[in-house]
Nucleic acid binder design. Structure first.
Lengths: 137, 137, 137, 137
DNA sequence: GTGGTCTAGACCACC
DNA sequence: GTGGTCTAGACCACG
């Protein structure tokens, strides 16, 4: 599960993929030399057009984040950035969390509710991961 | 200055304005009854077209965040009334949280760390609210 | 032809389109899942700008009347879900009725006549609905 | 009560006044030589700007529907149209009713509910008329 | 091909 | 002065 698309964010789908691949690379989730999902597999996974995935990959390649080898797929390049320090990674997440907090405030959802909602969604996320894994076994 | 535009984010400019006005309202930077910058003034400030600002404001009005009075300007509405049912509101927030969870996963931040980061940001947010309130009293 | 514009009515063109699409949906002229004319096609038909049609469609989408799928077009949504509470809905209708009552007053039509006229028009409306249904079966 | 404004219809306020005065004249509600409310009285009644009423009256005068005599007010001209036959008047009202019916359908309000809502609003209207009269006594 | 966004500039309605 | 609507035309994202 390398990417998750929010179709209502207004951000172009291909850019969402680009950013999430970069994030995964920056954190060490995927490492130099690791293969990325094939264009058609990812497109099917995310239920988007193959062109969109292809565009994201081509963007990543032009930025030298990944490397595509004809006939065998796309791989994370080693040249790139070393994994970010933990403080930096937390900082990035904090920005995203702040946006959620503002939204919660606007929807009149209390701090306590927000926290329990987070727990709930974390459990759902872990469950989806398990399901996904067993599907591929 | 109520908004700062990132022209390279890929997110539509008018949506960036919408979100930043909502954030400003949520954090207490602007308060019910306060006037927003005029369409022309904000457009000039941000170096964007009048129509783009107008579109953002019209979106905000249709979501009942602001009230526009022809000939006199746009004003922040009394928050309070979110006309959506609670289930709907939680649902929207869940989407936003899911995106954060995925990002945390990419950045290899554990569930426990994510939860404590949320608590930390909530406290920071409440503090900012207090500060704005006391400044304006 | 899903809409006819009256350029002299003073009502914004995009609102005329919105209302006529709603009317067409309500009367069964178009049905859930049906595609609407493309933005470009309708604009050309009505001899108005593409943006004006786009604005009407975007308004309709934000009211959940239609669904737009980028790259493939706009489609009428399954009606059913009016997310507004009943009180709100009656309230809106009351405003519209009040306007009719005032007009009846101006035209010196008695309350009893107005009521029987309503019954008459309701029957005509139901008949139109039936006709459209049987045509499309 | 010569006019009632719908601020959400999108139709310019001054045009709404023009149309309603014409309707009242067409039906005989007001007759040639009858005085219209003064600009400032009507503006106060409808809670709109005096300029807006003035503009409506000036439009009516340029169409020779009314006549303004300096210092004494505005009066309905006699030249104009003879009161419309009843069938014509009912026809006009039918159009307005059809729009309400479509809206009711869209808001999922049943025929029976619509009919009882009409009765309710008629009663409210008559009550307002009484109140208004007693205020002026 | 589809819809979405933005700009530039005009004109209208209202205070 | 305020916001609202419309046009013309460019470019982007997506299927």
């Amino acid at each position: 599960m390398i990417a998750r698309i929010d179709f209502h964010s207004g951000m172009p789908v291909y850019l969402q993929i680009v950013q999430q691949v970069k994030a995964a690379a920056a954190s060490g989730l995927i490492r130099p030399g690791d293969p990325l999902p094939s264009v058609r597999a990812l497109a099917e996974d995310l239920r988007i057009n193959r062109n969109t995935v292809a565009r994201a990959y081509s963007e990543l390649e032009s930025e030298s984040v990944i490397e595509t080898r004809q006939g065998s797929g796309c791989f994370l390049k080693d040249g790139g950035a070393s994994p970010l320090r933990k403080a930096v990674r937390s900082g990035r997440l904090a920005e995203a969390l702040d946006a959620v907090i503002v939204q919660a405030h606007h929807l009149q959802i209390s701090d306590a509710e927000l926290q329990s909602l987070l727990v709930e969604r974390l459990e759902a996320f872990r469950q989806r991961q398990k399901d996904h894994q067993s599907l591929q076994d």
